[in-house]
């Protein structure tokens, strides 16, 4: 049986007086905040923060390279968490033995996983590209197969595979469970990427930010705060896009259901005509 559409999107759209199904008051506020934050970030990162003693201006690439991978990490952790929820809510005995996911929460978590993974892939790609540019001017090379760079590429390729798996045609429950399992396997690489610079000898420098309280700061004043601020900005931007993406996934499901209903209606008409 087809579930009636969840009213949340529509209500949100109504409250916002919005035409786009993916907009709401909250996302509009978030969008304005994001744009303002990006403006301030551009000022801080490109103008106010100083050049580095050794690297000169190229250090400014840090303010997009490092926040990109942090946001990607966040996305992949969220994907893993949501996937665990999907598996839990669709296990047999949880009313999940049918082809279609009956559980509303499981569907929501599945969408969260999909939206977060897509953002993770986008920001991992940006990390690789900006890192490569940064590497060219500081290391003198676009690429080296050291442990950090290799595991990061692997992370990117794995989650591309995850997104491909999500697109494989299958019944929704099977698809959701299958991709959830893959997400939980893929996330194992995350700590490997992060600690590769400590575990192995790499060309890549060690972690940029020491977040331990009282720990030594290896980044001085304005650079430190600019990096933290850029991270916050990237998070807000990612959140904003992520919420829209989540809602688009919901609409895609609705469209799928609608086309199914259409087919059923056609069958009914055919039958009525045949009688």
């Amino acid at each position: 049986m087809i579930e009636t559409p969840e009213p949340d999107l529509r209500q949100q759209a109504q409250r916002a007086g919005s035409l786009t199904m993916t907009g709401s008051v909250a996302t509009r506020v978030l969008g304005v905040v994001a744009i303002a934050a990006v403006g301030v970030m551009a000022l801080l990162a490109l103008w106010i923060s100083p050049a580095d003693a050794v690297q000169g201006d190229s250090v400014r690439l840090m303010y997009i390279h490092v926040p990109s991978i942090w946001v990607a990490y966040g996305g992949f952790v969220l994907t893993a968490f949501a996937s665990a929820r999907v598996l839990w809510r669709t296990r047999s005995g949880a009313g999940g033995t049918y082809g279609v996911i009956a559980d509303r929460h499981a569907r929501r978590w599945d969408r969260v996983a999909g939206a977060a993974a897509e953002l993770g892939v986008l920001f991992t790609a940006l990390t690789l590209v900006t890192g490569s540019l940064w590497g060219r001017v500081t290391w003198g090379t676009y690429w080296q197969w050291d442990a950090r760079l290799t595991t990061t590429v692997l992370l990117f390729v794995t989650y591309l595979g995850y997104l491909a798996l999500r697109r494989l045609p299958a019944e929704s429950r099977a698809r959701a469970r299958r991709s959830a399992v893959m997400a939980l396997i893929a996330v194992v690489n995350l700590p490997i990427v992060h600690y590769s610079v400590d575990w192995w000898r790499t060309l890549h420098q060690e972690a940029s930010l020491n977040l331990e309280p009282g720990g030594d700061r290896n980044i001085t004043g304005e650079m430190y705060w600019t990096l933290l601020y850029s991270w916050a900005t990237f998070t807000v931007v990612a959140l904003w896009i992520g919420i829209h993406r989540y809602r688009v996934l919901r609409l895609e499901e609705l469209a799928e259901e609608a086309s199914l209903e259409e087919l059923l209606a056609q069958r009914r008409d055919e039958q009525a005509a045949g009688r």
């Binding site: 529509r10 919005s18 199904m21 993916t22 609409l251």
Partner: peptide
Amino acid sequence: RGRSLGRSLGISGTG
């Protein structure tokens, strides 16, 4: 994509 899906679903919500 959200906009076009909403429109094709007929629920792009006039608000």
